[in-house]
Structure formats: C-alpha cells, structure tokens
Computed example of a mutant assay.
Amino acid sequence: MGKRGEAFLKIFGAVYREYQDTLGERLDFEDMVNRATALVESGRYEIPFRHILVDEFQEISAGRARLIQALMTQNAEARIFAVGDDWQSIYRFAGSDIHIMRNFGREFGGVFAGHTGVHHTVDTGRTFRSVDKIALTARRFVLCNPAQITKTVVLAGEAEHPAIQIAWTRRETGEQVLDDSLKALAAEPAQPGRKPTVLLLGRYRFIELDMRSLRRRHPNLAITFKTIHASKGLEADHVVLLGADSARFPSMIVDAPFSPLSRPKQNTTPTPKSAA
C-alpha cells in the first residue's frame, strides 16, 4: 500500500477507536443491522414474513444484503421483491455496493427444476418527466458505461424543438453567458400568475453563485441552486447545468490508491445486458 496507505490506516484506526469509545454501549445503524442478522442466523429470531419488500435497492450494502439473505434462508417460502435503478446509485461512499443489484439472481435467486438464481424482472422504464430529446440523450450517455444494466426507456412525450442547449463559455464570460441564457428563458411563454422555475445545478457546492444578485437581475424567474446529489427527485421548468466540463462531468478526481480499504470492491467485468 505504500506510505500513503499506511498513513491512512494509522489515522483511520485512531478515528475508529475514538468513535467506538464515544459510542460506548449505544448502537449505531450498522450495529443494528449486524445484530439483527446474527439473531436471524442463529435462530433466536424466527421470521413471520413471507414477503420481503426492499425499495431503493441500488443503494444496498453488503451488511444489509446479508440480513436479507438470512431472512430468506430461514424461511424457504419467503420471497423478495426489490425496486431499484442502477442508473441512480450515488451512495458508494457510504458503503452501498451496486454489484449486489447487478448480480441479483446469484445473490437472491431461488432454485427451480435444477436451476439456481431463478428470478423474474419487470422493467419499469416509463419516465413521466422527460421527453425524447432529454431521455434518449441521457440514456446514450449512461450506457457509455458497459457495466450498466440496459433498460428500455418509455418516453413521456416527444418535443418538436431541441430540449438541450449548450452555451459555450470561458472563465471570464461565464456570468454574462448565464445572464443571457436566463433572459432568454424569461422571455419564453409562461403560465399566467406563475414564475417559471429555474434550477441551477453544480457538481460541487462551491460552484454556487451569488443567488441574491442573480434573483435581483432576473425577477421574473424563480431561481434556486442545488448540488447534483441534493437535487435527486426534484423538478423544474428549466435546469441549468453549471460548469459542465470534462473536469467535473464525470469527475476526473480519481480514487486514492488505498480507497478499496474503506469501500466495496469495484467490479470491472461488464455484466450481462439484462435488468436485475
């Protein structure tokens, strides 16, 4: 691991010991998951469930997957129903392992007629938010990653005009180009008595602009700023992606060589092109 890896372990060890000392006899979330798993595996807890439902399955961790497997092992009649989307996985830093979903059949599938990993997939590919000019562009971008599960996208509708526009800027012209873009949005037809909503998105928090000044210059728009992660699930009439350059989308900041010590292992082998 080299000197950086050794330094990381030294610092991490001190932080971990201090955390455990502060925690004392109390339980954190992972403690609860691990203890629940041990109770099920030992038979001290007998499950009354026949149906196990898991939402946001793309964010599942190895510890939580082990708990589900223990529940299913204890009751041969138990069935798991999981809902998730590997295109939306963002919590790897917190321990989630997307490869559990991508190998759903191997991890949770049943046995039937001599076959293992038996499971059934329902592709809920309909989007109620995005028209063709946005949804299909996003799909092409996401599938540049060969490890993504391929999905059919059923569109919310078709647009007559381009829905994505690129405004080229330099460092010194960025603010002026944004102002011009917002003026153009404010000039578009809008519902009477309602300001069009504009969501400014940044890869990092430090990209946020002077929102008070921006709103003062564009009083006919309802402008907000959020990071990409904080905006998940939200909508707006117009979305402006700030700083969309190769240094940020995708981020060019590589993981430290010792990051596998604290994260799930990364699978570099593409999975079969079928949803889990």
Rank of each mutant, 00 (worst) to 15 (best):
M1A: 11
K3T: 06
A14G: 04
E18N: 06
Q20V: 09
T22K: 13
F29P: 07
F29Q: 09
E30S: 06
V33S: 08
N34V: 12
A36Y: 00
S42N: 04
S42Q: 08
Y45M: 12
I47L: 15
H51S: 07
D55V: 00
F57Q: 04
F57L: 02
S61H: 00
A70D: 11
M72Q: 10
N75W: 13
A78D: 12
I80E: 07
F81I: 15
Q88T: 05
I90R: 01
A94K: 08
G95P: 03
F108L: 03
G109C: 02
V111N: 08
H115K: 15
T116I: 07
G117Q: 05
V118P: 01
H119G: 01
H120I: 14
H120T: 10
T121R: 02
T124P: 06
T124K: 05
F128I: 15
F128M: 04
S130A: 11
V131G: 15
D132G: 12
L136A: 06
R140F: 02
L143T: 04
C144F: 09
T150A: 11
K151W: 02
A156R: 14
P162E: 12
A163W: 07
A163L: 10
A163H: 08
W168M: 13
R171T: 15
R171H: 11
S181V: 10
K183Q: 15
A184G: 13
E188Q: 14
P192L: 14
P192K: 06
L200P: 00
G202H: 07
I207E: 13
M211V: 12
R212I: 08
R212H: 07
L214R: 03
R216N: 13
R216A: 13
R217K: 15
H218D: 06
N220M: 09
F225Y: 12
H229P: 03
K232P: 05
K232H: 08
L234G: 09
A244C: 12
S246I: 10
A247H: 09
I253S: 08
D255F: 03
A256F: 01
S259E: 10
P260F: 04
P260A: 14
L261G: 05
R263V: 01
R263E: 00
Q266L: 05
T269Y: 00
P270Q: 02
T271I: 05
A276F: 00
A276L: 01
